[in-house]
Design a protein around this nucleic acid. Structure first.
Lengths: 200, 200
DNA sequence: ATCAATAGCGAACGCACGTACGCTATTGTT
DNA sequence: AACAATAGCGTACGTGCGTTCGCTATTGAT
């Protein structure tokens, strides 16, 4: 009753599935993704959805990857034109605050949510979460290191401490937005990040 | 085949269930709690477990409450003997770092985990999470306010900013421990909290 | 023109879930 | 001594899950 589609159309279908899955996962977690529910909302059959990934675990990981790629495209890549070091770092911080304040997904940042959802559950999903999270950390660390090398930050500057505090501000911002819709939180996060860069 | 137990024994059973449920939830989330699994691991029947709470949602909320009460007993109440204000606040910060570093539950702080698990899912569980989280926030805020009133912190001190940064450090510490077992994280969290108290 | 490859469907599977009901045997009150 | 209350069990029910299998009809390479 439903004929095979072209390879190009299949890619579109796959994208539709991942898009819906990411929206669901951002609100209910990667475990909230359900093949039956996706099939319902996308008006296709369960087996049709399933075929694209073969395994629910693969679907979850693909969803996480998709969300991360979208974030990267919209909030990291634009910053890469900036001068590496303190300038670029500040833009990245600002972009991440904007992202966490008005996320691409209805339930907020999927990576942040998946972090605590899967930190205690070994397996491929957890590995994917850790990898994606590390990539974001590395991006920030790289610019911190460059900033020190270029003398934009004092030579005795504690890069790891600053990184810790920047990530911390992101976590707190995410929680404040998702839990309490605290409109003051973005400003506090910005200030906290700025303070992280001005070590005594 | 299994006769009724005394009311006292029933309380013990209830505590056993909650204890096991909290351990599971700390690793797999409040949704990881399953009546069948609890029955298995506690060697009782599903209906036996069920009867104590009547509803899975009630079981989840009870589990969260139990975890919070345990935390409160072990890490907050001992600090209440301290002088209110900056002294007590520092003890609370230190205690929370110790708690997040070596939690009472195998999967880390259940409240922190539940925060992002349920922030996008309206309902009684979410309400319970918010309430419990607010109580912890209030405790910290109260001592910050006292510290300002008593002149232990400058009059222009931004209490909400400091609170934001203290909570932020907790989030980051939790993530670093649960995700990467980062042994340097407790020190960084302590430093970040101390910096939060020394606004420029 | 031929034909292997495949997107998507429909139906079925075994399993685990939360919940409901009735029962039993002890408790603890009267 | 009598008896309502109840901790916990056993069984069952309906639902939704991930996955499997066979099918159909188009695509796209040969």
């Amino acid at each position: 009753m439903s004929p095979r589609r072209s390879a190009a159309e299949a890619l579109v279908t796959r994208a539709r599935i991942l898009s819906r899955a990411a929206a669901i996962a951002s609100e209910e977690g990667l475990d909230g993704i359900t093949i039956g529910r996706l099939a319902d909302e996308l008006e296709m059959s369960k087996s049709g959805v399933h075929k694209h990934f073969g395994t629910k675990e693969t679907l979850q990981i693909s969803t996480l990857d998709k969300a991360f790629v979208d974030f990267w495209h919209q909030f990291v890549e634009p910053a890469l034109t900036e001068q590496p070091g303190l300038r670029r770092l500040r833009v990245l911080c600002d972009n991440s605050v904007r992202y966490l304040t008005e996320p691409l997904l209805p339930g907020g940042c999927l990576v942040t949510a998946s972090l605590s959802e899967y930190d205690g559950r070994p397996g491929a999903v957890r590995d994917a979460v850790v990898e994606v999270w590390s990539r974001w950390q590395e991006q920030l660390r790289a610019d911190l290191v460059v900033a020190v090398e270029r003398g934009e930050l004092p030579g005795r500057f504690d890069v790891e401490q600053a990184l810790f505090e920047i990530l911390a501000a992101g976590f707190a911002l995410n929680a404040a937005m998702q839990l309490q819709h605290d409109q003051a939180a973005p400003g506090r996060a910005r200030l906290a990040m700025e303070r992280a860069l001005s070590q005594p």
